[in-house]
Nucleic acid binder design. Structure first.
Lengths: 187, 187, 187, 187
DNA sequence: AATGAATGAGAATTCATTCAT
DNA sequence: AATGAATGAATTCTCATTCAT
């Protein structure tokens, strides 16, 4: 799994890169763009990351870690009901894809990058594995192994599809509607 | 809507480009690659298309037209049952994303490009509108307007999400399972 | 062996590169330098050569071809004596390493590059094989197989060593003295 | 002449650099490579050497000193015969160019660098002067001034040429054969 | 002495596009 | 319609060097 917390100087670069990658995608963001947004020079980036791809790996890992600690974690909070768990998970997730300040909708850079750079496939699979496990864990409170499994798979697909549609139609209700539906499956 | 059938010389280029874009994505396919695969020179491409983006538009339009004529059309075939319609629609769709000869899984280049090149957004919206309309039309045989609407939205999201997962996990059962589920909604 | 004559547009680039590589060595000559000396832009070089290394290969091949046609060839001219052959071979060779106009001494770029870029090793071996064969062919007029072989090996080593010393001491007499000696071996 | 023994901390850097320069050449060895091989940081190198070139100077000086103390010195050992002197000199020299442990053949980094970085010319001339003097000193036991002079020049050229050929053909017999020959000149 | 972050100049390479022929 | 040479701007990456701490 190997998800380390980024060190001090790197952190700033990773966060700035994340912003740019989300706004402009991997291919449309140059190392120069990133350097500029960090207030350093292009060459200095290579002090921390050995290549643009390496940097992207760290960015995806960072997002993964964030999801583990801030989103998926709600699935394992045994003090609340299954429905509350899923609700919290969805709410936390919405915070990521919808920027309340700017009103902008962001995509799942991990997915979008993996579709275009096959090297990112393995790392994004881990993300989905964790996502799937969290959702399944919640459904298992109400359903048996098999149904929970199927519901989780279906929910993950639906959520990802709706993030895509939300981006394309610039309409976040695709996501919120989907979230409502997958929560309703616990009733 | 403005979907024209590509003319003779263009057609070959569009089809070759489609292949390459699906295998390597828009950004990883150069005009040189395309020219080579057509047996012509880079410069000659500009005889037919005024830019790489223009070419991509034509490719997406071509795919859109194909879906209209070969996939979505099944929704409007009044000689068969709703279930049969959806079944045929899904089967035809699977042919596109799964290459039986090579065993390779392809993505929806329209979507994947739109996520990365915002200019492609409007054209890909039209595609989804048609997709959504076809599915909704089928569900309306069994459900009322509102439910059909919701089911269609949900189904489109789920299908797109599962295409993504299928690509990332290189496992086409994500798609076939989803297809089974959305067909089952007619029972 | 695969030594082709360079085509029209390439030829100019190859010859200009040869000049620069000889004056400044492979590593100290940039693609920009080469482009400038050809009156074209850096990027245009890649129309003809897929990399700097590829260009260097063509340059070494060009030199190899030159040596075959203008230097080693004298060894196989059956109308003159062995001594005359070797004399002509040496004279032709001196023309390459000593630029009468500028008074400059050049090295064997093939050798110098091969010592620094291992990829050039195979091609420079071919050069030496031809050099060795030519010299041996001459010595065989006077000596038996074994002696001719040994004399050729020794002569090639001595010539190359003296080219090096000539460069380092900027004194072409190292080369001319060596040439005299290897010719004297035919007396 | 100015050949000082390197001080404590420097010594380690010089020796590590020597290894790298021999394996990868001057241009293909970065200050980072050197620092890493010494277990220190790039910046720290500048504590000892004011530039990469300066470091290379020290490396060449170090090699020069080694040759004086361990190789050329045999020429002046008056307790053994001329032939034994040359034999010892050659044997000691072979130890440098042929690494018995790894089986690798190394070049004369001084020469190879001088061919590519003219600034190293003066220092490498000193090396050759000493080499030449040692060989000449030996030949003078058997020959007069003039012949000894010529034989020494020839021998040095032949040795250097054969080191080159040995490197290019990865065959140390070029060197050993040459050594045999120059020793035989004392018979 | 040593660190490690940053510099800044420059390198090779890519690529969509243009255009005279 | 097609060629093929050339453009020019951008991009990733390298690396010797500096310097505050």
């Amino acid at each position: 799994m190997n998800i380390e917390k980024p060190k001090k100087g790197e952190q700033a670069i990773i966060i700035n890169s994340l912003k740019l990658f989300r706004q402009q995608s991997f291919h449309n963001t140059s190392m120069e763009d990133i350097a500029k947004s960090c207030g350093i020079l292009k060459g200095s980036l290579y002090h921390y990351f050995k290549s643009k791809e390496d940097l992207m790996f760290r960015v995806i890992s960072f997002v993964h870690l964030y999801f583990k600690e801030e989103v998926f974690i709600h699935a394992y909070n045994d003090k609340i009901s299954a429905k509350q768990k899923l609700k919290k998970l969805c709410d936390a997730s919405e915070l990521v894809f919808f920027d309340k300040k700017t009103g902008k909708l962001y995509g799942n850079i991990g997915v979008e990058s993996a579709l275009v750079v096959p090297e990112f496939n393995p790392i994004i699979r881990e993300f989905f594995q964790d996502f799937f496990n969290a959702v399944k864990h919640i459904y298992k409170e109400k359903y048996g192994e098999k149904i929970a499994n199927e519901l989780a798979e279906r929910s993950v697909a639906e959520v990802e599809g709706s993030i895509m549609l939300a981006r394309i139609f610039n309409d976040k209700t695709y996501i919120t509607n989907t979230h409502k539906r997958i929560i309703a499956r616990l009733e």
